[in-house]
Design a protein around this nucleic acid. Structure first.
Ligand code: MN
Ligand code: MN
Ligand code: ZN
Ligand code: ZN
Lengths: 124, 124
DNA sequence: TTATTATTGCAACTTAATCGCAATAATAAT
DNA sequence: ATTATTATTGCGATTAAGTTGCAATAATAA
């Protein structure tokens, strides 16, 4: 499917770019000036994920958060860093720390979703 | 709140003990012989989590999974191990590998939720 | 300018999980 | 053994996140 450039996509990308945190659909919608439907935002975000522009994080609240891929390597494990969720201000950010792990024999790791929960620098 | 011993609690614990995987409420309900209401199972599971008997994992599908704390240390970070979700058979298991991480200055880590996704030993 | 089809808005739907409340039952008190 | 206390349960309603079908709209190609 060929991609088309639309006001919606530009608005969503713009908001994500302006933020140094991962954002939920809800947060993105509130931050955007123009009115965009919930379903559309999800569709656009998932498209960005497919295209490797954005990555999705499932937080420990079970919700989806989205963040711009700033320095994600396009390797086998593109999003190979920890995420941090502040239990005070609830924000989620990408940490520079890479995830290192070891798995038992014959397990194959394709991707991961790793979140540390605690107090961020502003809240501790 | 004092705890009371009930058939429901025994059934839930029994099912979790018999499994070497983490289980969802739904999976637990199907495995139990007697009929127990969904809300009750969730309440019992959350109580077990409070009491440190069970730990909860939020998988990358956003759902809650529960596993017996077999060798969890009762330290500050009780559930300090990786979890593995098989993208073929969908099962989730506790890995022996501990999570090691580093966070920027003045971040305080309280707990974490780290999941590796891939093919388990049976599916790879 | 017209044709193609990706994108959007809307409403309906799905699923997970929680909550209020009255009824039930495990345990303590008598 | 009987009664009192209150933790637990079932039920239904509710919340919330996310998805889907479909017809209308609009970006891009022809
Ligand atoms: Mn990230
Ligand atoms: Mn575990
Ligand atoms: Zn914070
Ligand atoms: Zn498997």
């Amino acid at each position: 499917m060929k991609r088309r450039s639309t006001p919606t996509k530009e608005a969503v990308i713009s908001v994500l770019n302006a933020s140094n945190k991962a954002m939920s659909q809800d947060a993105i919608e509130h931050k955007i000036e123009i009115e965009i439907d919930r379903a559309t935002i999800y569709r656009v975000l998932n498209q960005f994920c497919e295209d490797g522009i954005v990555h999705k994080i499932i937080a420990d609240d079970g919700k989806q958060y989205f963040a711009i891929c700033k320095k994600c390597d396009d390797q086998k494990l593109p999003d190979n860093h920890f995420h941090f969720r502040c239990s005070s201000c609830q924000t989620i950010e990408c940490l520079p720390a890479l995830v290192h792990f070891s798995v038992p024999e014959s397990y194959k790791v394709e991707r991961f979703n790793c979140i540390l929960i605690g107090k961020c620098k502003d809240c501790s």
